[in-house]
């Protein structure tokens, strides 16, 4: 797989106080560290997305610590209560230290 790419789905607008559904997916192998290389017989080192964090206007809304039992291309769906317009920031952290992030704006009336 090429480099990891996040996908995020957030409604463009909502009414004040609405609880919205957010969906996220990042392309990633989630190498568990328990598989063996078919050719060499050696264990393939673990390389997973180990942390996922969602902030809204700088405050944490939701986060998750992930383990190798999460499927490849980790998918996450969750809720958020919106009371003002602003920006969601999504951050994924890889075992190798890479950090992937993306942002989405929402207009709240």
């Amino acid at each position: 797989m090429a480099k990891s790419k996040p996908r995020v789905k957030v409604p463009k607008k909502a009414a004040k106080g609405d609880i919205i559904t957010i969906k996220t997916l990042i392309s990633h192998k989630m190498e568990s560290g328990r598989r063996k290389d078919k050719k060499t017989g050696e264990l393939i080192p673990r390389k997973i997305i180990n942390h996922f964090k969602v902030e809204f206007n700088g405050a944490e809304v939701f986060s998750a610590n992930l383990e190798p039992s999460v499927s490849a291309n980790p998918y996450m769906q969750f809720k958020a209560k919106v009371t003002e317009s602003g920006t969601f920031k999504f951050t994924w952290t890889d075992d190798d230290g890479s950090v992937y992030s993306t942002e989405k704006k929402i207009a709240v009336e």
Binding site: A59, V61, A64, E67, S69, V70, Q77, F78, K79, K81
Partner: peptide, 18 residues
Amino acid sequence: VGTFNFTPMSGEAAASTR
């Protein structure tokens, strides 16, 4: 598998994953 942390801003403590 994982630990999911919520806040009052979550509005609802619900999540789906694979």
